[in-house]
Computed example of a mutant assay.
Amino acid sequence: MSESQAEFHDRLARIYRKQAETGLTSRKSVTIDRNGYVIVRGAGRGRGFPWAGLMMVVVSFFVIKGVMMSQIGADFYTQNVVRLSGGTQVEKAAAWTMRPDPISSWLATQIKANL
């Protein structure tokens, strides 16, 4: 067996051994680099649920509500939410999400105190 074939078989043995250790058996892509080596890339891990993005949306939602309550006043804000709750289904859903809650009320008082 020539030296290049032995090197190729050794490389394949390392690849298969690595696959057996990591449990990655499916192949995502097979390419040949400019030196003639076969590069086998295993499938990457599946992406999980984006918890950080979801938390950023939730925190932003409460912060925006708190800023609105501090700027226009809690009484006026509550009146507008009550006015919305008498409308269509979409307006009722908006009124339900925009109703004052302890977190946004606390944020509004903190923003008002620090201005």
Results as ranks from 00 to 15, higher is better:
78 T>L: 12
35 N>C: 02
91 E>M: 10
17 R>H: 13
92 K>S: 05
69 M>C: 07
40 V>F: 02
48 G>R: 08
87 G>L: 05
104 S>D: 05
91 E>P: 05
104 S>E: 04
27 R>Q: 15
18 K>Q: 14
1 M>E: 03
71 Q>Y: 08
86 G>I: 01
17 R>F: 13
75 D>C: 04
96 W>H: 10
46 G>D: 13
37 Y>I: 11
30 V>S: 03
12 L>Q: 11
53 G>W: 03
68 M>W: 08
89 Q>T: 08
92 K>Y: 08
78 T>H: 11
59 V>Q: 10
16 Y>N: 12
113 A>P: 05
81 V>S: 01
47 R>Y: 05
11 R>L: 01
2 S>K: 01
86 G>Q: 10
80 N>M: 09
11 R>I: 00
101 D>Q: 12
31 T>C: 08
38 V>G: 01
76 F>W: 07
41 R>E: 13
91 E>V: 03
65 K>G: 14
91 E>A: 14
56 M>C: 09
95 A>G: 04
3 E>Y: 02
50 P>K: 01
84 L>A: 02
62 F>V: 01
115 L>T: 13
7 E>Y: 04
101 D>I: 04
97 T>S: 14
67 V>S: 07
71 Q>E: 15
85 S>W: 04
76 F>Y: 11
1 M>L: 09
47 R>G: 12
70 S>G: 14
82 V>F: 10
18 K>A: 14
80 N>E: 10
67 V>M: 14
64 I>F: 15
62 F>M: 06
59 V>E: 14
109 T>P: 04
